[in-house]
């Protein structure tokens, strides 16, 4: 035991300075969800539907000859970037996809993006005030509602010394009674629906819900069918949606900070804005 204590001290600090200060977010090289340049799409002229046919998660639809990409369903498999003959889809490193309103995850393609819904409704203000009252502390109850364990692996990574989530005042708790945030992964299987709802009921108010991972935001490749729902839609009121398959630890941190109003939302109308 003393040897381990010495080792820990000797090795020094392993934690990144990010996100409080500029530093390594640890995601060098990580591919995000594909970027859509709808102006390049020629589907309306040629009737091409290669992308929609290749997408295993039904995230791409062709409506009125135009292409639409629903990031809530995108699993980032990058197949569309390989099949599009016009290069309308391109590989990106855009992974900080957390949004408060699910509608922001839909890239409508050619249709000009709707004006940004300003985040100043009475509800939002009340929510912001509530969140502020918590200061910097947040306790999370995580429920795996049928995930592939990819998201779980990244959630556990949050606790490793590199990300060290505790330093941000965010903790996981095993009991919903002590939780402020219900973090759900997986498409919600029929068997997990009831335990999930009961977990939510057991949480004290005010309480928030985050849908983490594409399964939870829109079903992804694993939702639907006879055994699953299509994510949290219609099951729980969700405050933050974070697609990604799986969302990497830095994306999870960005999403948690978005909930705590310490980070700005990057995605509006399905378009990713770079800081």
């Amino acid at each position: 035991m003393p040897v381990w204590t010495w080792l820990g001290w000797h090795k020094g600090r392993a934690t990144t300075a990010w996100p409080q200060r500029p530093g390594d977010d640890g995601q060098d090289g990580v591919l995000g969800l594909p970027r859509l340049d709808a102006a390049r799409c020629v589907a309306s002229d040629s009737g091409c539907s290669d992308c929609a046919a290749a997408c295993p998660a039904s995230a791409i639809t062709l409506r009125d000859g135009g292409v639409q990409l629903d990031y809530a369903r995108c699993v980032g498999c990058q197949l569309c970037t390989e099949v599009c003959p016009e290069g309308a889809f391109s590989v990106s490193h855009d992974w900080a996809f957390a949004v408060r309103d699910k509608a922001d995850l839909l890239n409508p393609g050619r249709v000009p993006a709707a004006p940004q819904p300003a985040d100043n409704s009475a509800d939002a203000t009340a929510l912001a005030a509530e969140i502020k009252a918590f200061g910097r502390s947040l306790h999370i109850r995580h429920v795996d509602a049928g995930s592939c364990n990819g998201c779980e692996s990244e959630l556990q990574a949050l606790l490793n010394p590199f990300y060290n989530l505790h330093r941000l005042g965010i903790f996981f708790t095993p009991s919903p009674r002590f939780a402020d945030l219900l973090l759900v992964t997986g498409p919600v299987t029929a068997a997990m629906r009831e335990p999930l709802l009961r977990t939510y009921e057991a949480m004290p108010q005010p309480r928030w819900v985050m849908a983490a991972g594409t399964c939870a935001t829109g079903g992804g490749t694993n939702g639907g069918g006879y055994a699953c729902h299509q994510g949290l839609d219609g099951i729980l009121p969700v405050d933050v949606w974070l697609p990604g398959c799986p969302p990497n630890p830095a994306a999870l941190i960005e999403a948690l900070l978005l909930l705590l109003r310490q980070r700005a939302q990057r995605v509006h109308g399905g378009v990713y804005e770079h800081a």
Binding site: W4, T5, L7, G8, K11, A14, G26, Q27, D28, G29, V30, L31, G76, C77, Q78, V91, G150, S153, E154, Q156, A157, L159, N160, P161, F162, Y163, C245, P246, N248
Partner: peptide, 28 residues
């Protein structure tokens, strides 16, 4: 400390994965 060290080494391999393939889980 051994827990932290094991998970830190795992994280370092995942970061190598990401730089090599674009995916921490070697997908795609």
């Amino acid at each position: 400390v051994a827990e932290a060290e094991g998970h830190l080494l795992e994280e370092r391999v995942k970061q190598i994965n990401a730089r090599l393939t674009g995916s921490r889980f070697l997908r795609g």
